[in-house]
Structures are given as structure tokens and as C-alpha cells.
């Protein structure tokens, strides 16, 4: 499984301290999600675009992610402009489009895409394990981070198990259709995966106990904040304050 596709790179944001990136990202997404109107979200969108220029991520992959994320937004565009109870209307053939409804849909679209760009450039540019490591530094409960760490570590293992069972099923002539037999087969595949997971978990726990596990993984390596990371965070916060004052 090739999962962390955006984390491959060597830009400034790929190398920046994940702790600061998480803090900037949390602040950004809360401010952006709570903004209203068109102008303020647009400012946040420009900030995300700037990050995109710095991060230099794979553009084709970026577009495919944006298209998927905008699926729900398309849904909103389909319903809102005709159903919104605003005063002024634009008549477009047989359609009566509410001006406020259009504004509202546009606002949602900008906010959604601004936050997705920030997620890709600030979070996805770090590896999942370094994000988990940073979460411990940021005082996220240890038990939650430990569960998250093992969960991510074993996704690839369970995926390999799934592929094995799938190959075994297709060797026996299984072709998925809309039939009860198909659903039963999928259920047994999932059941098989769950049982393997139970057994693996017991083995892993014993192995962890042998190594002195007491409910969490102690931190071994530590991050080092560079001067440029601090400058980046300060610039970002100043930008957020300016946008906040302007709106």
C-alpha cells in the first residue's frame, strides 16, 4: 500500500517541525471554518495557495484529491441556490436562483478547498509516525496516540492478509455480484481478517510485555525547532491576525 504520497519531498514544509505545523494548521482550520461571507474565506484561500507554492506537492494527485473532496460541495451547489430563502433572485430560464444562496454555496466552496489545501501542505507533508510523535509532545493522551501508532503500523499487515484471502477467493472462482452469496463471502472475508487481527493482537501484546510495555511508548527521539520554523509560524499567525482584523 502506497499511502503517504504527499510526504515524499524536500521542500521547506516537508522539513519543518511537525509540532509547529500542527499548531498552525489547527489555528488556521478553526479560523477558516468559522469565517463567513466571501472575502474572509478568500484571504484564507490565498494563504493556502501560498503554502502550496512552498510545498511543491504532486499536482496531479492534488487535483484528484480536490475533485473527490468537492463531491459533497457539488451536491450543495445542486440544491442550495434553488432552495435558499433569500430576497433577490436571478432568473435563469426556468430556474429561479437565490442570490444569497449562490453566495452561501460559494463561501462553503472556498472554505472547504482552503482547508483541504492546508491539510495537504501542513499535515500530509509529514509522515504519519512523525505526526503521532508530535501529538505526544502536544499532550494528546498517551493511550490514544499508542492506539493510533499500532493501528497505523498494522494497516499494511492486515491489508496483505486481505489480499491473500482475496486471491484465495478468486482462485476458487469468486466473482462479486449483487447476490446474497457475494455478501456472505465478503462477510466471511472480513470475519477472517478480524480473527487474524485478534490472534495477532495477542501475540503483539505478549511481545510488548516482554519488552516492558506499561501502556505507552516512551519518547526516544526529539524534534529540533529551526529558526526558519519559528519565523514561518510567526508570519502565519500575523497573517491570521491581519485577516481577522480585516473581516
Amino acid at each position: 500500500m502506497h499511502l503517504e504520497e504527499f510526504s515524499e519531498g524536500s521542500s521547506f514544509l516537508h522539513k519543518a517541525d511537525p509540532r509547529l505545523k500542527i499548531l498552525v494548521f489547527v489555528l488556521f482550520s478553526v479560523l477558516c471554518a468559522t469565517a463567513s461571507g466571501i472575502k474572509t474565506p478568500l484571504f484564507y484561500f490565498f494563504y493556502s495557495l501560498t503554502l502550496l507554492l512552498i510545498a511543491k506537492v504532486k499536482i496531479r494527485l492534488l487535483f484528484s484529491r480536490l475533485i473527490v473532496a468537492n463531491f459533497f460541495i457539488a451536491f450543495v451547489w445542486f440544491f442550495i441556490p434553488t432552495g435558499y430563502s433569500g430576497n433577490s433572485y436571478i432568473i435563469l430560464g426556468p430556474l429561479k436562483l437565490s442570490y444569497e444562496g449562490l453566495n452561501y454555496a460559494l463561501s462553503i466552496t472556498i472554505k472547504c478547498n482552503a482547508i483541504i489545501l492546508a491539510t495537504i501542505t501542513l499535515l500530509s507533508t509529514s509522515s504519519v509516525f512523525s505526526l503521532a510523535h508530535a501529538m505526544l509532545h502536544l499532550k494528546v493522551p498517551k493511550k490514544l496516540v499508542t492506539v493510533f501508532f499500532l493501528f497505523y503500523r498494522y494497516i499494511t499487515v492486515i491489508h496483505e492478509e486481505y489480499l491473500k484471502i482475496k486471491i484465495a477467493a478468486s482462485l476458487r472462482g469468486f466473482v462479486p455480484r449483487t447476490t446474497l452469496h457475494t455478501y456472505k463471502t465478503y462477510a466471511y472475508i472480513i470475519g477472517g481478517m478480524l480473527i487474524k487481527s485478534y490472534e495477532k493482537a495477542e501475540e503483539i501484546y505478549k511481545a510488548m510485555l516482554c519488552r516492558g510495555f506499561r501502556g505507552y511508548f516512551p519518547l526516544f527521539e526529539h524534534f529540533h525547532i529551526r529558526k526558519s520554523d519559528i519565523i514561518f509560524s510567526i508570519v502565519s499567525i500575523v497573517v491570521f491576525i491581519l485577516i481577522w482584523v480585516k473581516s
Partner: peptide, 19 residues
């Protein structure tokens, strides 16, 4: 802890299956 984590991995993979 390992049980919850690894069952979560299994659910994550199961949710990628298209029926």
C-alpha cells in the same frame, strides 16, 4: 490496547472494500 488498535486496522481495510 493492541486489540483495539489492530481491530481498527481491520475495520479500516474493510471500509476500503467496495461491495
Amino acid at each position: 490496547i493492541p486489540k483495539v488498535a489492530i481491530l481498527s486496522s481491520a475495520f479500516f481495510i474493510a471500509s476500503l472494500i467496495h461491495i
